[in-house]
Design a protein around this nucleic acid. Structure first.
Lengths: 358, 358
DNA sequence: TGCACCGCTGGAAACGTTTACAGTCCTCAA
DNA sequence: TTGAGGACTGTAAACGTTTCCAGCGGTGCA
């Protein structure tokens, strides 16, 4: 199985390579030439070499999705959404892991090699170094996450503040008054914003008693450990707000192991609304941060920028929605989804819309 | 930010492009030339264009993983393992979805375009068309799944037969005598082999009463529906063997909704040992088919074939292991993992080893 | 002193495409 | 009849790199 080139096709068809190329690409050519070339290509089993085309055309038809920890269900969900959009537009999707061998800065710098026409990046931490690398990148990058205000980059962000307020308001409505917030590491972007979001959400309810503890990591095990510690204290909270679903599940386990019943003795909520939230019993109330939508929008932004490189940078904020399940209710109703616009009319701000910037 | 080429570097350094290329690639060159070229490259911010290198060198440094349904945790686990091996060897990983737009046959045919040096394929269905496409493929493909005996291809397979026997033997040991097998669609490769594996496993226990029902799909919802149907019958089984963890979780829900207690009234087991199995209550007894190991081995086989294209085709079978959790025990112990070699000494066959062929 | 060899260099070809450009033939209108 | 223009074609350049090959000067050895 040796490679058959367009030169051979042209020779077999008795035309020049230029004509062969034109015939195959639907450029201007006589019907006879097209027929001969098509036939020759079919006989020889010719398929154009992607690398040579890329070199000549100046684009690879490849896009990359770079993420620290593939395996995290949230990123998988985003990836699926991205893949759908990308492949529907005729691009191939490349997966760059930023965790193991290379940092996200390295990944961005490597874009200079031109193996890809654009990238979607989910950075765990946003450093100045990363920002300058992004600013200098010759290939377009869409960032999933929250950038400093100055950055002129296409961005898709979740709305941790609204997410936290949805949760806290819901718990208050359900009669909870003593809330423990179990966060992940606060030196990560999600950790920092969920911390601030929780603090902001709580200010509307001055009568609340609250406390915060940081789990070592966004995992079940870390959540379990942290919540054991919380529940070992003198005053037991009547609700645990976890920074993601995994920590929340750790919280459920910890509470169960101490003989507590959920939600009677203590409510538990998560964030991300992963598949796990629906599977665990009692069902885990969780805020859906719109991973699927964020992935899809990011891909669309990237395609738009590739089509028009000079367009203004866009920032899209995806609205969260609260999915209520048994873990936070006094009486166990079925699950229901609460969109912010429904329950919180004063929030008819720019969520879910694009804001163009500079 | 325009592209800076090696020609500019060479000019800036005052040498020929040939010398510049040699200096940058560690070929033979004088110390002075190397210094000048390195300096020029640094000043100009030169990075070699990946596409041009690919064209010239004849390899892309890219590998692909093709799978129907990314999002399925089993495939995600494999993908993570593949990614680790692949990126550690300096390759980029490309994700080809075979479900949405293109079939796996299309994906394999497309390999002729040479955008990738090799591929790992997880086909849902293995057709003759696919086999011929694989045989004709100019780029190496490693198949995750079970191929017909004649096929001279690198393959990594799970061992459904042993998996099923581990489960059935375990349930028998726990005193179960009436087993319902809830399979997925049998026109898929996993469905077909699990069906046959169950049938084989059951023959060792002639006193067993068994029945089989096929769920519409390998999902929680389909499992729920199928098990409702099973439990609606006259004689209730004392165990449900599900073809994967999702169906098993559907089974747990169905049993609970009918007021049954697991495992007292009915035992439930799954396959794949996904993260869900450890999260659900009671913990789901499940057979780990070694997704991580299969992914890793597949990647290694692929790299080995790329390094030595003429080597014999290898088939690796990865041994399953039973992970016992609460859903199948009469008294609830903690989880334990049972490897076949430990509990079943007569099974010291070729599992986990390579068999070279043709 | 001559010759072989070695380290190093630059010109040019090659990888497989696409496309700019110029040329040929044909048609049509003046 | 001639000129313009359109349809089509082939030659050759280009994309950015690596590598073959010939040639250069220098060194070691006879």
């Amino acid at each position: 199985m040796v490679r058959v080139t367009i030169t051979q096709v042209a020779a077999h068809a008795g035309v020049s390579v230029a004509s062969a190329s034109r015939a195959l690409n639907g450029q201007i050519a006589s019907a006879e030439t097209i027929a001969k070339v098509r036939h020759a290509a079919a006989v020889l089993g010719y398929v154009a070499d992607a690398t040579a085309q890329s070199l000549q055309r100046g684009r690879t038809n490849q896009l990359a999705y770079a993420v620290a920890d593939i395996g995290n269900p949230v990123y998988v969900e985003m990836m699926s959404a991205i893949e759908r959009v990308v492949s529907a537009s005729g691009y191939r999707l490349l997966l760059s892991s930023t965790g193991t061998t290379s940092s996200s800065v390295d990944v961005v710098r490597d874009l200079g090699r031109g193996y890809v026409d654009g990238m979607i990046l989910s950075p765990l931490r946003i450093t100045d170094e990363l920002l300058t690398a992004l600013a200098q990148s010759p290939t377009p990058v869409v960032v999933l996450g929250r950038l400093p205000d100055g950055a002129r980059l296409d961005t898709v962000r979740a709305d941790s503040f609204t997410a936290m307020r949805l949760i806290v308001d819901h718990l208050v409505t359900e009669g909870r008054r003593d809330i423990a917030f179990v966060n992940g590491p606060t030196d990560t972007t999600p950790g920092a914003f969920r911390r601030d979001g929780f603090a902001a959400a709580v200010t509307s309810h001055p009568y609340l008693s609250t406390r915060t503890v940081d789990a070592q990591d966004f995992t079940i095990a870390a959540g379990y450990t942290a919540v054991r510690q919380v529940l070992a204290g003198d005053q037991r909270p009547d609700a645990v707000v976890a920074a993601n679903d995994l920590i929340a599940i750790g919280a459920i386990r910890a509470a169960e192991d101490l003989g507590l019943t959920i939600p009677r003795d203590i409510a538990v909520t998560g964030i991300d609304n992963t598949e796990l939230a629906g599977v665990v019993r009692p069902g885990l109330t969780s805020v859906d941060l719109g991973a699927e939508e964020r992935g899809r929008v990011a891909a669309e932004l990237l395609l738009a920028r590739i089509a028009e490189p000079s367009r203004a940078a866009h920032t899209v904020t995806v609205a969260p929605s609260l999915v209520v399940r048994g873990s936070s209710l006094v009486a166990g109703h079925g699950p229901k989804r609460v969109a912010p616009a429904l329950e919180h009319g004063d929030e008819a701000t720019a969520f879910g819309t694009e804001e163009a910037a500079g």
